[in-house]
């Protein structure tokens, strides 16, 4: 990011539509809060940039480390926030993060039935479907059916655990390490870890055929 682009980012991009009521009110609320000295436009811009820097790739790095380093995995399961910070990733002020490990016997999938709580300090904004009423309604009563909709059919012998997040406790799934990855390094392993596998609606990608 070059400094000279910063000023431009205070101004919305050229609109491709007339501003909606929502957009007008957001602008008005921000303008008033700035006038009253409660926040500055620069703080808002930096907060947006900070959220944009939080991505599932950060979660993938954490999982890849856990796959190659059992001691790290143990620390991650014991205190995820502290373990994540070992990788130089800061997850912000909010909420405890709890890591849950998927194995051959247990599959975890995460939801927030009440709202949209998500380890956003690590993974960034949650996807739309995660916040949708239908996902929140159904995954707790029919997790296998929902997973099937996402293309994941689990062996009936695998126990499914649905983790319901709260504002104070947010979950990160450690997907099972795919077979055939024994020779892979951390970076290559991380490329197999998708956002959806960190939520538990998918497994980690299998390694590409060689």
């Amino acid at each position: 990011m070059h400094d000279d682009s910063h000023d431009d980012r205070h101004v919305p991009p050229a609109p491709d539509h007339d501003p909606t009521d929502f957009e007008k009110r957001v602008e008005a609320v921000q303008a008033l809060l700035v006038e009253k000295g409660i926040l500055t436009a620069d703080e808002v811009r930096r907060a947006v940039e900070e959220m944009d820097s939080r991505t599932p790739a950060q979660g993938a790095r954490v999982v890849a480390r856990a796959w190659v380093d059992p001691a790290f995995k143990a620390r991650l399961l014991a205190d995820a926030k502290a373990a994540i910070s070992e990788l130089g990733i800061t997850v912000g002020f909010d909420a405890t993060i709890v890591a849950a490990e998927n194995t051959e016997r247990v599959h975890h999938v995460v939801v927030c039935t009440l709202c949209s709580c998500y380890p956003r300090g690590l993974l960034g904004y949650p996807p739309d479907w995660y916040k949708s009423l239908n996902y929140r309604s159904r995954v707790v009563v029919d997790p296998r059916g929902v997973l099937k909709e996402f293309g994941l059919v689990l062996d009936p012998n695998v126990e499914v655990r649905v983790l319901d997040s709260t504002a104070d406790m947010r979950y990160l799934v450690i997907p099972a390490r795919p077979s055939g990855t024994e020779q892979m390094g951390e970076e290559e392993l991380a490329s197999l870890v998708t956002r959806d596998s960190l939520i538990g609606v998918a497994e980690a990608r299998p390694p590409a055929m060689r």
Binding site: F22, L33, E43, V44, A47, V48, M51, Y125
Partner: peptide, 15 residues
Amino acid sequence: LSWWEKRMDAITTLL
């Protein structure tokens, strides 16, 4: 997310 949705998120979390 639109430019404005990100602003709404940022304003709220900043507060």
